[in-house]
Write a protein that binds this DNA or RNA. Structure first.
Length: 469
DNA sequence: TGGTCGTTGGATAT
DNA sequence: ATATCCAACGACCA
């Protein structure tokens, strides 16, 4: 179902690096005097921009690179905190305060660009084709429903903002992850990510709405709160070396994740046997977007909830498939959901069965993205393996043949995961966070032994019961 | 150092 | 709908 090649960041990045290098070779013959580009905090672009700035300084080209992608300058917030990024949202909000530009309205009138002029017969851009990116074999109707561009972004922004009551009452945690005909959020994230929509303009539009209503929600749950979350992750990511890895990451708990490719692939390819999880992964594949809480469900399931697979593996899948995937935010949320950083209440596990049922008891979301289950009665739609064979036959969906059996039993798997998390946390505490590769290996062995013991106990108990009977 | 509190859990009781 | 338990974390701040 998925193209076999995984397009990690490196391939895409080397493509843009090539373009920049070519661009540099043309700066002399074009007599370039000034280079303007937005300041970028992602490590890859930091390195790239340094190269460009160094070159410009050598050949005497002026560089203008302002911070404008985020509400605040991450470096300022880090400096205010004594050189380290704040690790909680509340402390970030307190440090950040009001944006300096908030009182002066941003201009949205777009001045026209000067004509390109003579470029000496060279190609200006080499935008890769859909086929080159590995999507050539996908049917047109499977492409994301998002249309690109600034005009589209502003149109969609207006549609959201026009509903003042909705904006004023917005509370992120209360949204419905199963809503797909009309998603429960603004779905503006792809436009923020690609710079089609300015987060600062969005912020000002929201403030305008707030000024014109009696009451409105507040951070962290409000819409402005969501923009602040974005800035929070940008700031921590900027101030944390190796933010996208477990090892060498000062703020990341060292956890002995599985290296189980079978479980990872089942999750990635929407074959876990849990319809709620698989439907979300299909939506990811088809739309490149899912509701925030849907992302929580599958991320928790893959890592600390059920499969105990490394969060970096899930991060890679999201990074490639999400249309709004953003380096700081994606990594930040995987750290959060895997209880590796920011959030530590590993006992709170999303159930792959009851969480979705709460919002969508009929399973409409599942039936839409997993049509193989469209005739499964709602009593069984979240747990089709419990349906009697007669029901499965009538629904034309035999579990184990037409749709997979669960890869792991949720009850015991999540219990096991809780235990592993507790052990890993206690090791991190004991070693004050300085957990080595060897320490993790040892813990992995210990956990396996314990699990063997449990299995043996269960066996012994069963034997005893048999003897009694 | 100890108290507070944290965007978004689940199961069960009322 | 709301309260309570489960089992109990760590960042922040006084």
């Amino acid at each position: 179902m998925f193209p076999t090649t995984l397009y990690g960041s490196q391939e895409t990045q080397s493509l843009s690096l090539m373009r920049v290098k070519k661009g540099i070779s043309h700066t002399c013959q074009w007599d370039v005097k000034k280079l303007c580009f937005e300041y970028d905090t992602d490590p890859y672009y930091q390195a790239l921009d340094t190269k460009v700035k160094d070159y410009a300084s050598i050949v005497g080209i002026e560089v203008f690179s302002p911070v404008s992608h985020t509400l605040f300058n991450p470096a300022d917030v880090i400096q205010k905190n004594g050189g380290r990024p704040p690790l909680s949202y509340q402390s970030f909000v307190k440090l950040a305060g009001q944006p300096s530009w908030a009182s002066s309205p941003l201009s949205v009138t777009i001045s026209s660009l000067p004509p390109v002029g003579d470029v000496g017969g060279c190609e200006i851009s080499e935008v890769p084709t859909i086929k080159e990116l590995g999507y050539g074999d996908i049917e047109q109707d499977e492409f994301s429903p998002f249309r690109g561009g600034e005009s589209e972004a502003l149109k969609r922004l207006k549609e959201s903002i026009n509903n003042k009551e909705w904006v004023a009452a917005f509370e992120k945690p209360k949204g419905d992850p199963s809503a797909f005909l009309k998603p429960a959020t603004t779905t503006l994230s792809p436009y923020l990510k690609f710079g089609c929509l300015s987060s600062r303009y969005f912020y000002q539009c929201l403030q305008d709405v707030y000024r014109n209503v009696k009451r409105h929600t507040s951070p962290p749950v409000s819409l402005v709160g969501q923009l602040l979350w974005r800035d929070f992750f940008y700031t921590v990511a900027f101030g944390t070396p190796n933010f996208d890895r477990m090892t060498g990451n000062r703020i990341c708990k060292q956890i002995p994740w599985n290296d189980n490719d079978e479980l990872l692939v089942a999750w990635r390819d929407a074959r876990t046997g849990y319809p709620w999880i698989d439907a979300i992964m299909i939506q990811l594949y088809k739309w490149g977007w899912m509701h925030h809480l849907a992302r929580h469900s599958v991320a928790c399931f893959l890592t600390r909830g059920d499969l105990f697979v490394h969060w970096e593996k899930g991060r890679d899948v999201f990074e490639r498939l999400l249309i709004d995937s953003d380096w700081a935010i994606n990594n930040g949320n995987w750290l959060w959901l895997s209880c590796s950083s920011f959030f530590y209440q590993y006992n709170r596990i999303y159930s792959p069965i009851s969480f979705g049922k709460k919002y969508d008891p009929n399973g409409d979301y599942i039936k839409h993205f997993l049509p193989i289950l469209k005739d499964m009665p709602k009593e069984y739609i979240y747990e089709p393996w419990t349906a009697p064979l007669s029901v499965q036959t009538k629904a034309k969906c035999i579990i184990g043949k037409d749709y997979p059996k669960p890869v792991v039993p949720h009850d015991s798997a999540s219990k096991e995961s809780r235990r592993k998390m507790a052990e890993a946390y206690s090791l991190n505490q004991k070693l004050n966070g300085k957990v080595s590769e060897e320490d993790l290996k040892k813990l992995r062995r210990k956990l396996e032994e314990d699990s063997e013991d449990t299995k043996q106990e269960v066996k012994t108990k069963r034997m005893r019961q048999k003897l009694i009977c």
